[in-house]
Write a protein that binds this DNA or RNA. Structure first.
Length: 293
DNA sequence: TGCATTCCTATCATCTGGTG
DNA sequence: CACCAGATGATAGGAATGCA
């Protein structure tokens, strides 16, 4: 089995502070996997354009666009027409942001969970320049790793989070970005998204959807992948696992029951898929996160 | 868009660990 | 020991993809 190689920028992680900053140059020779991790993530587009899939939303991005991604949100970036993009990615443990504490009642992390599901922010030129300066400073400090680096990084991160909160609160319609939704997607793919939305908890097959839309299964499979970056099965699975995670945390239903409710008529397969996408088994996931709530 | 081939998902059988 | 929930391994067949 061939081992997937990470881009150079990703090969140098040493993570003593649960903090990472790196530039990802995605030229299409490496497929971004689905990601799901414990750390909070900020994704800033330096150049080029692409698509970003976060949970069940599809965004397009270009230089100057920024994404804020909460931990446990499935996400995946994708090229558009094979054109490369360059993005700066910051990941950090929530604890790092809490290192600086003021009694002003403001939670710097609220942008990660109180932004009405809008992950994307388009920065104006001024803010872009300011952010890029801070990113440079963070990167320099991260690579230098001298005494008190963590303190400097925590301070820079605080600045960043407060500015982001201001930008989100401003909620200027000019700064908000239209979702890349059905209106821009090919009709056939938009129809598939609608269909999947309505039926993902049922036993649905590619051939069935293709018949519904009067196209061949292979054509549908190809177009869906081309437009969304997901295979159909991958997309359906992500929606099912997302719902399963909610049920695991918000209900006391048995894992077997939850598997059935989200569309898996085989518990074993549910286990296998869940573990592949989330990194841990359903039971363990519940144990780990329910007690932290 | 369809055929042929490859890949990998989904299923079944079985195992493991916890509990009574 | 029996029972149950959850985990693992092998593999058939459906899905993805290369090519025309």
């Amino acid at each position: 089995m061939k081992e997937k190689r990470l881009p150079k920028a990703l090969q140098t992680f040493v993570d003593p502070f649960h903090f990472r900053i790196f530039v990802d140059r995605n030229e299409g020779n490496w497929k971004m996997p689905f990601e799901w991790h414990e750390k909070l993530e900020i994704f800033y587009t330096i150049s080029g354009k692409g698509k970003y899939f976060i949970e069940d939303k599809v965004y397009t991005f270009e230089a100057g666009d920024l994404f804020v991604i909460n931990n446990h949100e499935l996400h995946k970036s994708q090229l558009i027409d094979g054109q490369p993009f360059e993005a700066l990615i910051i990941m950090f443990n929530p604890d790092l942001a809490k290192a600086v504490h003021l009694e002003d009642g403001m939670d710097p992390l609220s942008i990660f969970y109180e932004r009405h599901n809008d992950h994307q922010l388009r920065l104006d030129k001024d803010l872009q320049r300011q952010f890029e300066n801070v990113f440079d400073a963070m990167k320099t400090e991260y690579e230098r790793k001298q005494g008190y680096s963590q303190r400097i990084i925590a301070s820079l991160l605080q600045w960043l989070l407060v500015e982001l909160k201001r930008a989100y609160e401003k909620n200027d319609p000019l700064n908000s970005v239209e979702l890349y939704t059905g209106s821009e997607l090919k009709d056939i793919v938009a129809n598939v998204l609608d269909y999947v939305d309505m039926h993902y908890c049922e036993d649905i097959k590619l051939s069935q959807i293709a018949a519904e839309l009067c196209v061949s299964p292979s054509y549908l499979s190809r177009e869906f992948k081309k437009e969304t970056g997901f295979s159909l099965v991958e997309f359906i699975s992500s929606k099912r696992i997302r719902l399963a995670r909610e049920l695991l945390l918000k209900s006391n239903l048995q894992v077997t029951e939850i598997a059935g409710r989200v569309g898996y008529n085989n518990v074993t397969h549910f286990h296998w898929t869940f573990k592949k996408m989330v990194g841990t088994s359903p039971g363990n996931f519940r144990k780990m996160y329910k007690q932290n709530r």
